[in-house]
Design a protein around this nucleic acid. Structure first.
Lengths: 206, 206
DNA sequence: ACCTGAACACCGTTCAAGT
DNA sequence: ACCTGAACACCGTTCAAGT
């Protein structure tokens, strides 16, 4: 449910609470680094110099390379974090809103995610091995998230059943990339149509 | 019909045959540069160092930057050249083959073009102004080329009419990008299906 | 006119030295 | 254990000097 894959070595004999593997400052650096990188990538693009990110995060470049041996590893880590945040938003929204609204809100959240990550998406096709596992991770985290919202909404009778989450994710993603050429808000209005189409009472046959 | 837009200054009073604007060695350098760049991009990708291209072409880096103020200008020029070559192939094939076969051959030629230029296609979305005019040029040259083959084929009764060239170009392009993930030859076999669908006698309704 | 290549600025990455 | 930042290698781009 929470963020995800913190590395814990397997096979620990020394049980107990003094099990913290990373020093507090290291953890703090790591967090600052990822947060700063996200912000810098958003403003300057993914080609922003590592030095600039390190400086703004208040760490030395060496620290960046300690955590992320390659530039692309940092980019991939930021991307994973955003996937996590988007997936986690599903349960938060499900707790706050009714079944249909939670679904609708999450779709908008997903649109923001995809739109903001266009630069990264381009990097995905670069062949860099650092990005290899990302598509699978994307699926692994986002599909169940949407599936949960779907199940809740159709159990409540708010939408008709049978919609495939991964198809919808892909469709929205391609709408968003097309939207960049057309104009803003285009994607959002298309999502509105999609949601109306899912809703019970709409004339849906094909 | 031929390659394209060699720059000729407007307004020449000094008529005559001694009108050559570029020195012979400059022209030779230019050609070598574009040919070499094409080859280097194909093997090492579009991120290949300018120095390497200059060296292999037998010119100084300064010469590269004289012709192409930015790295991206060189890439764009290579791309334009390939568009020209692909467009020009249409009339060549039309002269050599019958109407339907010329169309079929050209589609394969176009598949090669799109497949080989995947790296460049990714660069197109980078926002670099050097690439701004390329999509329009793509359309301007390739659409008439395919339209000519279409017209000839449907005049000969070989295909049914009404197919939109630009739609077909886009469809094939997206097939090719998808093909990269699936495997080679996938695009070619899909093109085969498309052509069969165009052919008269096939059961086509939807 | 056009070409060359040393020189400059900048960026990814490493590693000896610190705490 | 983890951090720092000078140092190295490399790449885009410029420009004084050549022909």
């Amino acid at each position: 449910m929470s963020g995800g894959s913190e590395r814990r070595g397997a096979g620990e004999g020394t049980g107990g609470q003094a099990d913290r593997r990373v020093r507090a400052d290291a953890q703090r650096n790591m967090d600052a680094l990822l947060r700063t990188a996200l912000a810098v990538f958003a403003t300057s693009g993914v080609d922003a110099p590592v030095r600039e990110i390190a400086e703004r995060a208040g760490v030395g470049v060496g620290t960046v390379y300690r955590h992320f041996p390659q530039r692309s590893d940092l980019i991939a880590a930021v991307f994973r974090r955003e996937i996590d945040a988007c997936a986690d938003a599903a349960s938060l929204l499900a707790a706050e809103y009714g079944p249909f609204d939670a679904l609708a809100q999450w779709m908008l959240r997903y649109v923001d995610f995809v739109s903001a990550k266009r630069g990264l998406a381009a990097a995905l096709h670069s062949g860099d091995p650092a990005y290899e596992a990302l598509p699978a991770y994307f699926d692994q985290r986002l599909r169940p998230a949407l599936q949960g919202l779907f199940d809740a909404a159709s159990a409540a009778g708010a939408i008709r059943t049978g919609a495939k989450p991964n198809e919808l994710l892909r469709a929205v993603a391609s709408l968003c990339t097309a939207a960049h050429d057309v104009g803003p808000d285009y994607a959002r209005s298309m999502i509105g149509l999609l949601l109306d189409g899912l809703r019970y009472g709409a004339a849906g046959s094909a």
